[in-house]
Design a binder for these strands. Sequence first.
DNA 1: CTGAAAGCGCTAACAT
DNA 2: ATGTTAGCGCTTTCAG
Lengths: 345, 345
Amino acid sequence: MSKDERVDVEAESGPVRTITDLARLAGVSAGTVSRALAGNSLVNVKTRERIQHLARSHGFQLNQVASNLRRQRTGVIGVAIPLGHDRRQQISDVFFMTLLGYLADELTERGYDLMLRRVLPDRDVDWLDRFIGSGMIDGVIVIGQSDQFERIEDVADGYRPMVVWGNHSEGQRHCVVGSDNRLGGKLAAERLIAGGAKRLAFFGATEPIEFAARFAGASDVARRMGVSIKAYPTHLSADRTAEEIAAHLDHHLGEFDAIFAATDSLAVACLKGLHERGVRVPEQVRLVGFDDLPIAAETMPPLTTIRQDIAGGARGLVDLLLRRLQGEDTESLVLPPQLIVRATA
Amino acid sequence: MSKDERVDVEAESGPVRTITDLARLAGVSAGTVSRALAGNSLVNVKTRERIQHLARSHGFQLNQVASNLRRQRTGVIGVAIPLGHDRRQQISDVFFMTLLGYLADELTERGYDLMLRRVLPDRDVDWLDRFIGSGMIDGVIVIGQSDQFERIEDVADGYRPMVVWGNHSEGQRHCVVGSDNRLGGKLAAERLIAGGAKRLAFFGATEPIEFAARFAGASDVARRMGVSIKAYPTHLSADRTAEEIAAHLDHHLGEFDAIFAATDSLAVACLKGLHERGVRVPEQVRLVGFDDLPIAAETMPPLTTIRQDIAGGARGLVDLLLRRLQGEDTESLVLPPQLIVRATA
DNA sequence: CTGAAAGCGCTAACAT
DNA sequence: ATGTTAGCGCTTTCAG
């Protein structure tokens, strides 16, 4: 039905915005219209089709808000991105944004809408309760624990339909999906050491729990293999890291023969810094990243890195959440990271 | 108020979920509670504070859905990302995702929530009407016109609170915010030609209207300067472009001495392809990208590119939308792109 | 198979 | 300054 036809039809009857308008037009009750539009089989096939056709020809749209209120469910999943350590940054973080894209795909596929909320926990202590209590969402996915691990734990017992992307810790109460960061760190260190590295450097922030686990995994291996490892801390926000990495390279270049970067973004910056200082990769300094973002395959030389299964993670998050919405009590899902060997280590 | 205190208080009175519960507890009417929580000055200061304190101590949250239905506004802005030419791709497109991040920031700042909807126009012809008509959003921002220019135009007359990120065309009816892509193309071509280029290549898709404008801008300059230009088409999805670019380079390397890549992502892939074939940049082939994504500064050599003001774009989108929500009738906003000279041209 | 009626939880006249 | 009342638009018993 074209727009023009619709206008013609409306001219005869005035706008039809509510189910009651439609009912009057069809000569039935609002209840019947509601049932007809819902495809309820109780209603006579002929009237059902008549009503559905009428609805379409008038461009009628069900008011979701009213429907939501009545049914006490919204078909909307909240996605919260807490920005703890470094304000502003993470929301433009390539990894999180990619995950968000896949989440949007996955939720759409399953018939849910996505409400995105960026959150500054220091300004708004009650961010999670407020999101949950708003009545606007059926469940919530939290992307990244940031420094809010405890607050999430507090909520987890009283609110089931919540799943979190992040790191899994022994005995935690909230349902989490995420890579085995410790194993990822292990794989990275093993690769570097197998290539002959004797003094490892870890570049990246170490407070975020995921990154701490990556460092810990690498440290385990280093200790076991009798190799030294030292963390060279950076912040998370892209603009600052470049300088910080440059400073580390300027002052400590002789101290290591291999770098494990906490993320591919950091690794790319390292690669550039090394190149600018005439350091050959991997001959003089080996380098492994983390994430396997698309950019990892496009650097020169292409980046050896630890792949996180982002699409799989998104699928897992949605899967578990929907099962929790059914009342099931789900375990956490730990995804195995994978070493992707390219040319930097 | 800690969680434990809250539990204590609740133990005395049962759960307090609705405004009516709270009213009973406070010994006033629901109306007064509603006013008190809204900070309405009509209500007595003492009772107002008493009610607010009571609400906090019971962890009371207003049901937004009910509120929305009654007030006929939701405080939610819809953000639609139509995926026309290349399914799946754009939602993970770095540029769009970055824009989305800034939009989330900007909307949050202004007190709005963001409902994200990824949309496949070929499967769902009515995507825009359905989003608008759902009653769940007060206004809509469309990120990218994709191949939906006409549909957006159709809707624009009947629905005011809509702003679109994309390309501005003479005489169009929908309010759009976007870079002057034609000017961007012009700047790119000028830079290349000033460096001595005689035969330009344009790498990228040419159907999307933004990209077509970039190519057109470059073509204008080429024609005026007596320089040749030819488009080497690619698709949008990241996985296919790499091969396509490789194929172009293998078959047509001698045909050009400069590349204008439609996006930085493409430019990075070009850079890699050229490097692998032993072609020096910029000595043998000059290269200019588009967007100025963070990665542009991190390539080797760093990428000369045309910057789009993403943050400014997001601010503009939200600004115009909110003014439209006030009933104002806003003009489109065309942002000037800026040549960022680094080392590839 | 359909209609009538109650009500989701909140807000905003309108009253006092 | 507060209470009362009538809905917002829809869904779902409960009757018939």
